[in-house]
Design a protein around this nucleic acid. Sequence first.
DNA 1: TTGTAGGCGTTATCAA
DNA 2: TTGATAACGCCTACAA
Lengths: 335, 335
Amino acid sequence: MKRITIYDVAKEADVSLATVSRVINDSNVVREDTRLRVQQAIDKLGYKPNAIAQGLALSKTTTISIVMGEKLFSYNEKILNGLMDVAKIYNYNIMFHTTSKGISKMQDVIESIIKSRVDGVILFNDNFSEEEMEVLQEYQIPMVVVGSRIPKTDIANVGNVYIDFESLAYELVKSCFEKGITDISLVEDKLNLSMMEQLKSGVDKAYEEKGLKFDKYISYNDSYKSSYVYFTEYYKTHQPSKVVITLRDSQAIAFLNATSEAGYDVPKDAQMVCVLNNKYLTMVRPHISSYNIPEYDMGAVAMRLLTKMLVEENNSKLDKNIEMSYSFLARSTTK
Amino acid sequence: MKRITIYDVAKEADVSLATVSRVINDSNVVREDTRLRVQQAIDKLGYKPNAIAQGLALSKTTTISIVMGEKLFSYNEKILNGLMDVAKIYNYNIMFHTTSKGISKMQDVIESIIKSRVDGVILFNDNFSEEEMEVLQEYQIPMVVVGSRIPKTDIANVGNVYIDFESLAYELVKSCFEKGITDISLVEDKLNLSMMEQLKSGVDKAYEEKGLKFDKYISYNDSYKSSYVYFTEYYKTHQPSKVVITLRDSQAIAFLNATSEAGYDVPKDAQMVCVLNNKYLTMVRPHISSYNIPEYDMGAVAMRLLTKMLVEENNSKLDKNIEMSYSFLARSTTK
DNA sequence: TTGTAGGCGTTATCAA
DNA sequence: TTGATAACGCCTACAA
């Protein structure tokens, strides 16, 4: 079966292809009866405009690339949902790229982004370096980074929708200090180095201000099992910290299990908070305290920002750095 | 900055655009020194071939659409990883579509798939009806369905990579019967109706063969909270079944919590198995028995199958229905 | 209101 | 081994 084109429709409706093009694009200069005739031809033939050809003609693909790490835990999932929903509203197609250790370096992803001439790019934090961002810059592809804060702000064509994880950690530690607690641990998450870095710097800052030095950054492999094993081992020689901060559910639950199995009580002996919230935190006992972070909205805002950047090429005084707010969810692992 | 094209490179290297095209596409008829000259021009200008134009010229986009539900729990995530990795190997780009209740009907997704002229489609089960599949058929887009078994097999251009959930459930129930257990519940998951249907039909079949009728299909809303509430309520008037089968972690954990809080012991009073495995099943106590399902491989196999279908247009005797195997993971909720 | 023709960036077929 | 040139399918001035 031959792919049917605008010519076929034109012939069928006995008009020129220009007219068909007009009805496809809702031009308002078409007489009603010819519009009808064309529409009938379109329906009859089952014609669908070739987006590739349109892309070529318009130098605009109406598609956006999303780049994220291959490990998409629930935090990313909700951001993705927000991105997709808004993309749908604006009728953007999505090219999806994942980065992982072995198989695909960011470099390849960038290569294919440039080649496919997408209109814009959404980058999840933690998947690229600054120089990689600069490559995208050279090709003048508008992009917004979603997740945590990026160092360089006010680069042309770059937006950022973020949570200020540094402040979050800073405030959390300060509030511990106010309760007289200074023995705090922060558990590393290798999947989110940039978030971790910001959390750590917030913790450091709070300690510094108090004239102390923070030295309980707990680092090990990132799977659930290893963190569970790690803590179990840890308790043979250590006492738990008074407060333990964790980024994701896996580490939080591992900690919870290991701690209670070592004979300690949460929150009596050790309190804990897991920064990123999800449903599993309330499936375990006790329920784990966390933060309410508007993941879905972050995605939605990021995509909307990008679409704005795409229309207002004259990136006027559009605010391209948007901070999202969070709030503490006190549950049973804190008191 | 003007987008640089093959013409610019041609001028820079002082050759015709045809020659440039040849070196881009690794044609072996180019003399070594001119290839070099062209390559230098390419590097100097930072030229990247326009995939859109290539797509137009070749009637081939080298991109594949993936369609899945918006809720991507870990089961889907791993399939997706498999898909992406293999797509990368074959240098395919991925268009990503999600379907959800309100915002995007499958119909719109199909529309955009057809317009974007992707070479093939991967469909996750549970997101489309048979007639929607037929639309894709009309446009002759090769596709493979991944997840559970599709009813109609041997349609041209349609592949299927699946787990036989019906057999899985059938065997599971049979093995219960052998242990003298006939009081079994199956908990519904609204997110995966087709999987559920197959599980249920396997259960039904086993009961029928024994001359019994299965009547403990537990149905309610699909969020964690509601299933937890449901079970808690349930136990005020019911005893737990001897064996409870669940599809996903959420329901399994909800059941576990509600059951033990109602004063029953798992597995003594009620055994349970959660069909889809993931790490959370071993984060709770007791560890939940499950099935080892090769999700990643399913994705990888599905994508590889699709690429094969794309090259061997003469869909010869290529086996387009691939059943994947599973195995039981006995943990602490069964005995 | 409609049609004609040039252009979007490549590939591929012929000649040279 | 290289260079013209006609597709590929659509959009958009410009004409009619």
